[in-house]
Computed example of a mutant assay.
Amino acid sequence: MLRNNKGYLLLEAMLGVLLISAVCSICLPFIYVANQEQKASKELLYAMTEVDLAAAKNSEGQEEATEKEWSQGGIRYELKTRKGVTDEYEICITFNGSNHKEYTTCASSY
């Protein structure tokens, strides 16, 4: 080596950059998937809130549950009423999340 050890060699700098880029290339796909799952969780929470509000309005007699569709944030939601297992009506919402999975959540209307 050189007697003047005041800096890094080019080879040492290249190895450092290579190590950092390898760690980033391994971690970035996992970060992307976690971000998509976080968005889908927020969308699911919104859908659950909407279906609970519709069930509450239906049980109080304020509004007859009907089928409706709308979009919010690029996601298309479908709200439908169907007859459940115990002959009571369920209000269900269906949507495709930002992680490309289909979600369905239901609430009973008394």
Rank of each mutant, 00 (worst) to 15 (best):
M14Y: 13
E69T: 14
L53F: 05
E90N: 12
T81R: 12
I26G: 03
E78K: 07
K42C: 07
G84N: 12
S41V: 14
G97D: 04
S109G: 09
G16F: 03
K39L: 13
M14I: 05
R82N: 08
T94M: 00
G74V: 01
I26D: 05
Q62A: 12
N96L: 01
S109F: 03
D52W: 00
Q62W: 07
E90L: 08
Y77R: 00
N4M: 07
A65G: 08
F30W: 14
R3Y: 07
A55R: 09
N58W: 11
E88K: 10
C106F: 00
D87F: 08
L19C: 10
K101H: 02
G7R: 00
K80Y: 05
M1N: 09
E63G: 05
I20H: 00
Q38L: 15
I91S: 09
F95N: 01
L11M: 13
E50C: 09
T86K: 14
V51P: 05
L19T: 15
E88V: 14
L45W: 12
A54H: 14
E37I: 00
N96Q: 12
I20A: 11
E67I: 14
R82K: 11
I75R: 04
A56Y: 02
L11C: 09
K57E: 13
I93D: 00
D87H: 07
L15R: 02
K6P: 06
Q62V: 11
E69K: 14
A55L: 05
N96S: 05
G84E: 01
N5G: 02
P29T: 04
I20Q: 06
K80N: 03
V23T: 13
Y77G: 02
A56H: 01
S21R: 01
I31P: 05
C106Y: 03
V33W: 09
L28V: 09
K83I: 01
R3L: 13
S71H: 02
E88I: 11
L28R: 06
L19S: 12
K83L: 11
L79G: 04
N58F: 15
D87R: 10
E64W: 07
V33E: 14
E37D: 14
L45R: 10
V51I: 02
G84D: 12
L10Q: 04
L28H: 10
Y46T: 11
T105E: 06
A54G: 06
Y103I: 03
D87C: 03
K42W: 11
S109K: 04
K42N: 10
Q38R: 15
K57V: 02
T94K: 06
Y32P: 01
L11T: 14
E90G: 03
G61H: 01
T94H: 07
L28T: 13
I93Y: 07
E90H: 15
C24G: 10
A56P: 01
K68Q: 07
I93Q: 04
K83E: 12
L18F: 11
R76M: 09
G73H: 09
N99A: 04
M1R: 03
Q62H: 06
T105L: 08
K6G: 08
E67C: 06
P29I: 09
A54N: 09
D87Y: 04
A13V: 15
Q72Y: 08
L2D: 13
D87N: 14
Y46I: 09
T81S: 06
E43M: 01
H100G: 00
I31N: 08
G73E: 08
N99M: 03
Q36D: 13
S41A: 13
E63M: 07
N5Q: 13
